[in-house]
């Protein structure tokens, strides 16, 4: 398991694993090019760590800690929605 976050009033956030934070280019003359790569089947799933609620506990989940198992990752628009 990824490290369990402390429960406090702040909302815990996660992020991608193994990727540098996007920053300003070192050289002012360097242009910032936004490259958005769509996910591809047959390619590695981006690793991430995310805060989670699971069976009464606040915890954290790191995708790469589930290597060796099949994983279904589902995104949805929001809690308490109707579909």
């Amino acid at each position: 398991m990824a490290e369990k976050p402390k429960v406090g009033c702040a909302r815990p956030t996660g992020g991608l694993v193994g990727q540098a934070e996007p920053g300003r280019p070192k050289d002012e003359t360097q242009s910032v090019k936004e490259v958005r790569k769509m996910i591809q089947v047959g390619k590695a799933a981006p690793d991430f760590v995310a805060p989670a609620y699971c069976k009464g506990e606040f915890t954290a989940v790191k995708l790469s800690e589930h290597l060796g198992k099949w994983v279904v990752l589902c995104f949805y628009p929001g809690d308490f929605t109707f579909v």
Binding site: I39, Q40, V41, G42, K43, A44, A45, D47, L63, S64, H66, L67, G68, K69, W70, V71, V72, L73, C74, F75, Y76, P77, G78, V83
Partner: peptide, 18 residues
């Protein structure tokens, strides 16, 4: 918000379907 995306990831960490 996030759209309804569903990804099937194999034991090697490879996306097999979405």
């Amino acid at each position: 918000v996030e759209n309804r995306g569903r990804f099937i990831i194999d034991p090697e960490g490879v996306i097999q379907a979405y």
